[in-house]
Design a protein around this nucleic acid. Structure first.
Lengths: 370, 370
DNA sequence: TCCGATTTGTTCGTATGTATG
DNA sequence: GCATACATACGAACAAATCGG
């Protein structure tokens, strides 16, 4: 054990243990150690190298060799720095999510990263379970679609813990306001505005809007819906805004529309939907009432999911970049990881969030009001 | 990443993962590696050094460098006994795969397992990459849909290595014959038989069949197609069987059908398709030739994917359990894991493979031949 | 038991590349 | 732009352990 590199190693070790080298403090440079111990550079590097793999030191090219902060950082960092990215979405196999995931997966796998999927089913408990997994295992980064982004989030601590452990994350589709994270989102307010304006320009004035309000998207789209009315000088019945939450999506909107279409007198001539999924559901109600789309009622969806093209009536809807968004999210998270790992910077200071401009796709479900 | 020592490192890693270097087996000496890669001894030592600290190799002075036995490894089993299941499929976001994955994911997450997805895009290289990842990280079990199951599989070594490392796996939809693994598959021969018999019973005698033959499913369905003809005493033109491989799926079948429909005289009156995806493609050709389905031509799909219900003509097709299959696969793998971990048995001796009986779903794309 | 060939372990010297401040 | 510090790579030498004959 009296090899030269071992002597150097033990000497450095002592200084770490007795507190001469504090966490994140720079230790002697390689050339200094060469002089001190009268050994070659190679010997110094072997000594330092072992301390690095044992998790006592870290090196930064051009800057120096530093002491690791063992207080926060247990074994975890070392064990499996194996290029893992986690993706948390509300669903993994329905609606637009397969496309988003495909976009991300194909980009990430190009760079040797591998993807773990978690779905929350729009449920905070599942979200918590996913976050726990991610914190205990080792992930290099996380792409998150927030669950019920409009409500208070009981898992906020877990997100803060991600930051504390220096695991970068970004949010897609929406984000928790309290966290103010890097994100890729739609301009949902403008989306709702565009949906509504399209109908107004077609001459509709009695428009009913259905919005899911437990996520940010729904709230913003509703805001856009109101704004379009206001800016075009159209007054409207407050009853013409229907809000619902995830759990009610299969029941409440359907029942309310059924009622609205039953009362004669004040039947709406157009419908703005939170998304395509709801639009499809409401189409069933319209059919059940023997009304025709778009002849009797116009309807606008959101997201341009495959559903929009499945039905007899192809839906007018708002474009969602889906696989492109997945790819952008993947790119963004890899960029952050690069910066964070190479320079011990904090994730927040890298790059900027992006907001996607919504575009209307006009198909057959909307028509001039006569 | 293209440093010389990294190239050497990856090369050695490959040989460990594909089973060239078995546990406790001596790997090439440093001087051999110097010759092989034309690098200095220093470079070789750096490469080996990293693999040693990562726990893949150990060195013995005077004797050589040896491969670590990961199957009984206390540390690794311990560190991430984290309930991870990997799913490898040919695609993760198209066709019937989202449904299969959803079925598996929802079952596995109930039991606290978490799912990592890999897609091979029907490509052996990607399959290899996925298997390497799975062998490198620590997974409790793997659900695999084989890539090009009818062809010789160049990754057979990686599967054998899974067994050596005691990581249980099962295969779905098809399996590599050489491995004879536990599996959940369709009775594809019967499926092809049922497709064809349905048409024969409707009076069709000039039936053309399109089969993807780089996977087992296609070959078996073709076998069923032939058997139905034989058993019903119908002779047929060998030209009425069209085979294609994954890469040709968007071109060859389309071109051939176009030719067939152009020559008058011998136009087929019915089509048996490898799957719904192909059926949809062929519907386009039929439409292009101004023919009607089912009036002029009957067509049968396979898998009952969402596509079967999307088109103007709803497809007659064969049922595929999809999410049910995912769930069964998940259940099967968890059962195996339970047995393997509790009793140190080998995976092979647990439970039995299951074969699903195909059922015909009759919709609007087939009609009595007059 | 010793010898010699082989193999890994330690140490030196040198050179060039690349990131940091 | 420049000095500093780490990263990669080559060459050479001797030491120490192993293994077959």
């Amino acid at each position: 054990m009296e090899t030269k590199y071992n002597i150097v190693k033990q000497a450095i070790m002592s200084k770490i243990l007795d507190g001469t080298f504090r966490p994140h403090q720079k230790i002697y440079s390689e050339s200094e150690l060469m002089k001190q111990f009268e050994v070659s550079r190679h010997t110094v590097r072997v000594a330092i190298g072992e301390l690095v793999t044992q998790g006592w030191l870290y090196r930064e090219q051009g800057a120096g060799t530093f002491c690791v902060d063992r207080s926060i950082d247990e074994v975890s960092t070392n064990v499996s720095n194996q290029k893992n990215i986690a993706i948390i979405t509300t669903s993994i196999s329905d609606y637009i999510f397969p496309s988003i995931i495909r976009g991300a997966e194909s980009y990430l796998s190009q760079y040797g990263y591998h993807v773990s999927l978690f779905s929350t089913n729009n449920n905070h408990d599942s979200e918590q379970r996913a976050l726990k997994k991610i914190l205990t295992q080792r992930f290099d980064g996380v792409i998150i679609e927030p669950t019920k982004s409009a409500l208070f989030n009981p898992n906020i601590n877990y997100y803060l813990n991600l930051e504390r452990q220096n695991i970068p994350y970004i949010m897609i589709n929406a984000f928790y306001d309290e966290l103010d994270p890097l994100s890729i989102t739609m301009d949902d307010e403008k989306g709702g505005y565009v949906q509504t304006e399209h109908l107004i320009e077609l001459g509709h004035t009695n428009i009913i809007g259905f919005f899911k309000t437990d996520d940010i998207q729904g709230n913003k789209r509703m805001k856009g819906f109101l704004k379009a009315h206001r800016e075009h000088g159209i007054t409207f019945d407050p009853n013409n805004i229907v809000t619902y939450c995830s759990e009610e999506k299969a029941t409440k909107p359907v029942e309310i529309l059924r009622d609205k279409l039953t009362i004669d007198g004040d039947v709406p001539t157009a419908i703005v939907c939170y998304n395509d999924e709801l639009a499809i559901r409401l189409l069933d109600v319209i059919r059940e009432k023997n009304l025709q789309v778009p002849e009797d009622i116009s309807i606008v969806g959101f997201d341009d999911s495959f559903m929009a093209n499945v039905t007899e009536v192809k839906l007018t809807t708002i474009q969602h970049p889906k696989s492109k968004m997945g790819e952008s999210a993947a790119k963004m998270i890899l960029d952050i990881i690069k910066v964070v790992t190479s320079s011990h910077k904090k994730a927040r200071d890298t790059g900027a969030s992006s907001v996607i401009d919504p575009e209307l796709i006009i198909r057959d479900s909307t028509k001039q009001y006569l």
